[in-house]
Design a binder for these strands. Structure first.
Lengths: 327, 327
DNA sequence: CTGTTAGCGCGTTCAC
DNA sequence: GTGAACGCGCTAACAG
């Protein structure tokens, strides 16, 4: 940068201003600087800039996994939005426990990110302390918590599940199973189980522990679930899967076993992943607009980083029941 | 850090050493420092450290998209490996052209990443210049290029496709279509088309332009492809899809249309995604170990960053033809 | 609109 | 095994 300044016959600070806000320097000067930058092949160093301005351009996203297509979609939306504002995206993997998230955040904060996107639905005291101490804004995306750390954009897993179970009841199904990925302290499964139980209670049905099944989030997991459930409890006539991947896996198993869907068993999913529309029969599911969650989460962070105030810090993007042939 | 040093009765530099390499300070001193760190709630700042040591802990991965499950798997493996060495992962989105990649890299280098993982198969001159000027090591993962920029871990898209087409020929299929995502200057589609054509040539079959079809990488894209191909060219009796997502979408379309697979048309995929094994019939496909590519790419970068020399800079992880019921 | 001065929080280099 | 001085590349704050 020194080099550039000399060539352009200005002070370093003027070059710095040109790099950050080209409009703040006179157009003649700007032109000289531009030329000098090209001659020297200057590549700015935002790290050094961040150190001196105490402001980094990095946003950290902490997710349980990125191989889940739904999270990948959200992450992608976050990324696109950040990119438009010259921000960078750094990844963190938080597993399913508070301790894991704390550990990841402890290492991430050493990079002094400008903001955090957190997908976990709960956080340790130490996590909260670190974010507070450093004054780093955050957006939570996993569920619409009553009291977010800072900001939140999501939907209610509880309501969404309840709505789906009510739909299955209305369609006349009597014995409804609930299948999900393993329950973890920090994931949304707990809220979904709550929704399932609440719906059954509201229509006066008993809660049968055997109808609740945890399995890995994969096609195979869904297939195993439906096979096991129907073997142990043949009276089951509908199953809700907390993820279309699970539901599709179950559907494939039904095809292999020649169990009619929804004749023998109705199948409902969650997420409205592409496959839910494309598989045969198409799956009833819940649409959650992950892209919108990602986009708005990024927007809120960006606003905050610009120093603007964010009026709505707890945004509900809602969900939508999508009825298709599988139920 | 000053604070911590005072409390522990040592100089800042000793604290610094403790943070980076706890073993280099005497155990008694270390204990005092540890205590002081906890008391103060000190959070190290690797940004500042990087500025002074001219070494960052960030690795940038530049991919065309992360919503592709295959890339997500690779990315996840990269991430896990980096995490073990205290490195961070930053994302970049390179689209399909050299210019897009150049632009993304131009902005990413401002964060002075310690290394790059590049999935594109070609790069602009300026991209090469930037990486060279800054001396940033890189690993390419998109294809096994003859002359990588620096290091490369991948497989041959050309060979893999050729192997698959030969398999279809051996199984007796006569009119074989090729379906892929849109060809872009920097993606692997070109290599796969080359493999398709080479295989047909080797067995003395004509190359019919109508049999080559580009479609968006989605279930819907695969469904549209098979529907259009069979309408316009009913003689087609097998189709290779450059992605299991496409192949599965085509399979779903066949189920809707009651076209027997492989009776009416054989379907082959690429990637050995979970769905290929689970759908009915299971899909013949090519297994590419994305996790291994990601893991080894990260390993090579880590070695390089440690100052160790990397003997094998061009690693072929190979591929494997998986024959299943769909062909 | 542009320049000067001071310092961000560390690590490097040498010394002890 | 530990410490002091200096500087990494840039920007805040103020002045002109």
């Amino acid at each position: 940068m020194e080099d550039v300044a000399r060539r352009a016959g200005v002070a370093k600070i003027t070059v710095s201003r040109y790099v950050r806000e080209p409009k703040t320097v006179a157009s003649k000067t700007a032109l000289r600087i531009k030329k000098a930058i090209q001659e020297v092949g200057y590549i700015p160093n935002f790290i050094a800039g961040g150190l001196s301005s105490n402001r980094s351009r990095i946003v950290a996203a902490v997710m349980p996994t990125i191989t889940n297509p739904m999270l990948a979609r959200m992450l992608s939306a976050i990324f696109d939005e950040l990119q438009g504002s010259g921000l960078y995206l750094m990844l963190g993997n938080c597993g399913g426990t508070l301790a894991e998230e704390e550990e990841v955040i402890r290492t991430l904060v050493a990079q002094r990110p400008a903001g955090f996107v957190l997908h976990a639905v709960r956080h340790s005291m130490e996590t909260k302390r670190m974010l507070k101490t450093l004054g780093i804004p955050s957006v939570e995306t996993g569920d619409l918590l009553a009291e977010p750390l800072d900001m939140a954009v999501s939907y209610s897993n509880y309501d969404a599940t309840k709505t789906m179970i009510h739909h299955l009841c209305k369609r006349g199904y009597q014995k409804i199973a609930f299948v999900s990925m393993p329950l973890q302290p920090a994931n949304q499964v707990g809220e979904r189980v709550r929704g399932y139980k609440a719906a059954l209670k509201e229509v006066g049905r008993p809660i049968v522990p055997d109808y609740i099944y945890e399995t890995p989030l994969s096609f195979r997991g869904g297939a195993d679930a439906i096979a096991n459930l129907l073997e142990r409890r043949p009276e089951i006539d509908a199953a809700f899967f907390a993820g279309d991947i699970l539901a599709a896996g179950a559907l494939f198993e039904c095809q292999r076993q020649n169990w009619a869907v929804p004749g023998r068993v109705a199948i409902a999913g969650f997420d409205n992943y592409d496959i839910a529309l494309q598989c045969v029969p198409a799956l009833t599911t819940v649409d959650v607009r992950r892209e919108e969650i990602g986009r708005r989460a990024a927007e809120m962070l960006i606003k905050r980083l610009r120093g603007e105030s964010v009026e709505e810090t707890r945004v509900n993007v809602g969900f939508q029941l999508i009825e298709r042939a599988s139920t």
